[in-house]
Amino acid sequence: MISFKQVSKRYPGGYAALKNISFEVAAGEMIFLTGHSGAGKSTLLKLIAAIERPNGGTVTVNGQNIGKIKAGAVPYLRRNLGLIFQDHKLLFDRNLFDNVMLPLQIAGFDHRESAKRVRAALDKVGLLKREKAIPIALSGGEQQRLCIARAIVNRPSILLADEPTGNLDADSANAIMDIFKSFHQVGATLLISTHDENILREFKGRRLSLKQGELQS
């Protein structure tokens, strides 16, 4: 599903964020990406979503080589990924329903079919009753759940979550991890970056541990 072969990424200015990374992720796996901040977790996720391009090696996602993918093909790659951001990246000028609707509008779904899917996604994260609210009225945990609803409404095969529980208290964090676990159970591939010790203690799954841009074994 996802494969890294001797991947390196340097940012302009010479800072090496990733050095010689190789690993494979099979379909249906739930993987925790661990390491301190600055270890390269976000960069690794960005490479998968083609937000950044590798300087060396090959990144393959769903059979596509990210280093060689054309700009015009990037949107279609991203529609098969669910992206969950630490800072949520919600749009505060529209209500919950319209926030979750956005990916379906982008993909050009039929309106009535979309409305059903949006409600199902909101229901899954426990926000269905608040579909008319605007995101500013939500707590941090609720905003993160809204971000998850937006990521899954397209039914992507791969979910990428960058520090999804970064700023949350333990209860909210657990609620979010339970949602991820339910996706794992229905066969989604998950890549979750975190440095939250509690979560790592509680949840099983393969670990990829990064330290200063290098993969620890």
Binding site: Y76, L77, R78, R79, L81, L83, K89, L91, D93, I106
Partner: peptide, 12 residues
């Protein structure tokens, strides 16, 4: 912001 988010979630 809307443009950036839209691009991140697959807008052409």
């Amino acid at each position: 912001e809307e443009i950036e988010v839209s691009k991140l979630i697959g807008a052409s």
